[in-house]
Design a binder for these strands. Structure first.
Length: 817
RNA sequence: GCCGAAGUGGUGGAAUUGGUAGACGCGCUGGACUCAAAAUCCAGUGGGCGCAAGCCCGUGUGGGUUCGACUCCCACCUUCGGCACCA
């Protein structure tokens, strides 16, 4: 508790209660009034709301408030991402039901969030684990299924042995391929899984037009999708009818093929391996198969492989080349087989050197002397040693080779993606059940929409066995087939929680709407999201999934056809680190608790300090020691507005009045510009400057003047987005009508904001040697004359005639001697 | 290895995008108030030299372009993110 200053405890609680009573933050459709849908990523219900949540939400709230004062009808909703493994694991550890654990956490978090004094419209709150919400997640699953966007497949999947569940490719991180949530290295497993056909939208997702998103996110998504254009063609195996297809982006190097490589798991391997090589091949395959399950870190980077004994024929020159298997060729990309061109590919080169395979140069580097290359040349160039294509540059050669392969019917141009379909099955309890029934006679049967939601049974044993706990719950598992009425079983896996958060922005529009995922009338008004804010960590997960969802929903006519993108503008805030500059975590013990800070300094101080620390997108370490400046500032605001001036003073003259107006309009201008560009830190600095300047000129007489009153009025308005409670209190105390948050944002007058004079620096040869006071927009000749008159300038010129005088109006003078 | 971001006082960070480097804070020093402390207020605070006027140095390092560079170009160093046998 601060020793002096305003009583933030009572002020803050009083106004929060008043806002609640009067419903100032309820948002409703108002035809004809411009809307602004501001969205902050919904928090996961981990239980504690640490300072990182405040860091994400308080500035988002400040900006939403500002947009509202600018005249927009603002929707700023909040909810909870409530399904997921952490709830289940925590519940297992503590022996509480995940639902109970989650709802208790929500209770806590809601209380904290309300304390923040944000303008969330709590009437629109959503909780993704409530049947009222997940009914529509299931409904959307069914729509995806109907439109061929959801399908089931037995496939090797990434599996987290600790979480005992599958992971989507996006959830496997790092060199050692570890689980996004628990850091355990993942292993492969063969399972029947549900997937979403996100790859259908790969090209569409590469199109970011109409989006105002950070380049960084667009780049990350582009790389994640990993589009590459090339040619896929057939290579036949010598002496057998067999053939395999390879994909290459460098068809121009096809004459340089000296061997071919199949992935160890390639289906053709057994058929083509010769007896002599069979043992080697088998042991290599065994080793490669094991490799995905052993620690990937111990993988040596040297490429190794085994000869199959078979030869493939290069269709362009009929050359016979040996076929190897090697684990540097992946089954999961392209065709699982490659043509190897060691002269022009680093990896193939390394492999060729290791096994003494020939290397030939077929692309001439720009200054090639015709001798054998010591290193593979991966750039473009002119084809050599390439028969009828010799002399052709790379690009046309690619086309020509592709055309020839196409004409002969053994190949075609193809586009490959790094992006895989999104695996959504999870063998866990605490998730949204997949609404599918398996019938021995009818096969895969979607649950009829009228039977939704398929609810989670409350009495399941949710121990992580590696199988879905729902599989062992008879009441859930056994059902009747909706088609033939025979006995049938339910799908027992639940959905990846990213499903729930892929469409939540739509449910906010009408969280209780019963006839669909959202009320189309609300959608027509509010959509799309105008401003989204959240962390960068979701760049290739949530942010990609929700773009996919929106495209699919548009194509399924669930949202307006002109909306390909869910969120027009995105801003990624940085991460707030612990006092030790490390990521905040309970185990490190460096988590900053907002409660203590609020008790000591008040909500408004904590909010404002978070915005003042640094640029919002930069984040940075928390520093309690420097926090005091902000409460001091707010106390100064308080005394400036509320407490009587110490000195009687004189009424302001015309110059002082001008000065008051100038500082007011300069503050409005700066704060406005900074809020527009999310520069909260410099906006707060500008408010501090304003307050400091007002403090300097204040006296009892000055405080009676109209210019002063305007200044104070503007100050309250400018402060409102940052310190909503204090500004509301001050607004009332200066006799204005409730609520400050419903007022129009002040406007500035460019003329009034302009300084009358400036301190003009004079440089001699680029070094500042003098400064003089001059009126704004003074004539260049006058400025030059004054500059040359400065004593220190004369000293430095030492009688020399300036060669050149550069006058930058209202900036500086540089004299070149 | 590839892609991206960033390196500024004791410290968090500013700098109108090529025009006074260090705004605004924190801390520190001195002063006022006080019996004293806390709080508050006032003044100072990049480094060095100087009584002063002023001079020199200074935005990771080294070059360059320019009247003028934290800002642009080239090379390098460091840190942090993302991707990584993608054919």
């Amino acid at each position: 508790m601060a020793e002096s200053g305003y009583d933030f405890v009572s002020i803050e609680s009083r106004w929060r209660a008043r806002w609640d009573e009067t419903g100032v933050y309820k948002s409703a459709v108002e035809e004809g009034r411009p809307k602004h849908y501001a969205l902050t990523m919904l928090p996961y219900t981990s239980g504690d709301l640490h300072i990182g949540h405040w860091y994400a939400m308080a500035p988002s709230d400040a900006r939403a408030r500002w947009m509202r004062m600018k005249g927009y009808n603002v929707l700023f909703p909040i909810g909870f991402d409530a399904f997921g493994l952490p709830a289940e694991n925590a519940a297992i550890e503590r022996g509480i039901h995940p639902a109970k654990w989650t709802m208790e956490n929500i209770e806590k978090m809601r209380r904290h969030l309300k304390r923040m004094g944000a303008m969330f419209d709590w009437d629109r709150e959503i909780i993704t684990c409530e049947p009222d919400y997940y009914k529509w997640t299931q409904w959307l699953f069914l729509q995806f299924y109907r439109h061929g966007l959801a399908y089931r497949k037995k496939a090797p999947v990434d599996w987290c042995p600790r979480c005992n569940t599958t992971l989507a490719r996006e959830q496997v991180w790092g060199d050692d391929r570890h689980c996004e949530r628990c850091d355990t290295p993942v292993v492969k497993k063969d399972l029947d899984q549900w997937l979403f056909r996100i790859t259908k939208y790969a090209d569409s997702l590469l199109n970011f037009s109409g989006l105002d998103w950070p380049d960084r996110v667009e780049t990350m998504q582009t790389n994640w999708i990993g589009r590459s254009e090339g040619v896929e063609f057939e290579m036949t195996v010598k002496g057998s009818g067999a053939s395999f297809r390879v994909f290459t982006t460098r068809a121009d190097t096809i004459f340089g093929v000296t061997f071919a490589v199949l992935a160890p798991e390639h289906p053709l391997v057994d058929a083509i391996t010769t007896k002599a090589q069979a043992a080697d091949v088998a042991s290599y395959r065994e080793k490669a198969g094991r490799q995905s399950e052993i620690d990937r870190l111990s993988l040596d980077k040297d490429r190794d492989g085994v000869f199959t004994g078979a030869y493939a024929i290069n269709p362009m020159n009929d050359a016979e080349v040996p076929i190897y298997i090697a684990d540097y060729v992946l089954t999961t990309y392209g065709t699982g087989a490659i043509m190897a061109v060691p002269g022009h590919d680093e990896r193939d080169f390394g492999f060729a050197k290791r096994y003494g395979l020939p290397v030939s140069t077929v692309i001439a580097p720009p200054d090639w002397d015709g001798r054998a290359l010591q290193h593979p040349y991966e750039g473009k160039g002119t084809l050599v040693n390439s028969g009828r294509f010799s002399g052709t540059p790379s690009d046309p050669a690619k086309t020509a080779v592709a055309e020839e392969l196409e004409a002969r019917g053994i190949g075609e141009r193809k586009v490959n993606y790094r992006l895989h379909d999104w695996l959504i099955s999870r063998q866990r309890y605490w998730g949204c059940p997949i609404p599918i029934i398996y019938c021995a006679d009818c096969g895969v049967v979607p649950v009829p929409e009228r039977d939704l939601p398929v609810t989670l049974p409350e009495d399941a044993e949710f121990l992580p066995t590696g199988e879905s706990p729902l599989k062992h719950h008879d009441g859930f598992l056994h059902t009747t087939c909706p088609v033939c009425r025979g006995t049938a079983q339910r799908e027992t896996d639940t959905m990846d929680t990213f499903m729930c958060s892929s469409w939540y922005q739509y449910r906010y529009l009408s969280p209780h709407f019963a006839a669909g995922p959202f009320d189309p009338d609300e959608g027509a008004y509010w959509l799309p999201v105008d401003q989204y804010t959240g962390g960068i960590e979701h760049a290739t997960m949530h942010l990609l999934y929700t773009r996919f969802f929106t495209r699919a929903m548009r194509d399924m006519k669930l949202i307006a056809t002109d909306q390909a993108e869910p969120m027009v503008r995105l801003f990624n805030q940085g991460i707030i680190l612990g006092e030790d500059s490390e990521k905040m975590s309970k185990s490190r013990g460096n988590v900053v608790n907002p409660d203590e800070l609020i008790d000591a300094h008040g909500v408004d101080s904590v909010r404002t300090y978070l915005m003042f620390i640094s640029r919002w997108d930069q984040g940075g370490p928390w520093n309690s020691a420097s926090m005091g400046g902000v409460p001091r500032f707010l106390n100064r605001v308080w005394s400036l507005v509320v407490e009587p001036a110490a000195s009687p003073g004189n009424p302001p003259g015309p110059a002082e009045t001008m000065e008051l107006r100038r500082m007011t309009h300069q503050a409005i201008k700066k704060v406005t510009a900074d809020l527009e560009s999310f520069d909260f830190n410099t906006a707060v600095a500008a408010l501090m400057t304003f307050v400091n300047r007002l403090g300097k000129v204040r006296s009892a007489a000055v405080a009676e003047s109209a210019a002063w009153k305007d200044a104070i009025r503007s100050l309250c308005l400018l402060l409102a987005p940052f310190a909503p409670h204090l500004s509301e209190e001050l607004w009332e105390r200066i006799g204005e009508r409730y609520s400050v948050h419903e007022q129009a944002w002040p406007e500035w007058d460019e003329e009034l904001a302009r300084p009358a004079t400036i301190q003009m620096p004079v440089q001699v040869n680029g070094k500042v040697r003098a400064r003089f006071q001059v009126e704004m927009d003074a004539e260049g000749d006058d400025v030059t004359r004054l500059a040359l008159e400065q004593p220190n300038v004369r000293n430095h010129l030492a009688g020399k005639v300036p060669r050149k005088v550069i006058v930058v109006p209202n900036r500086l003078v540089n004299i070149v001697a």
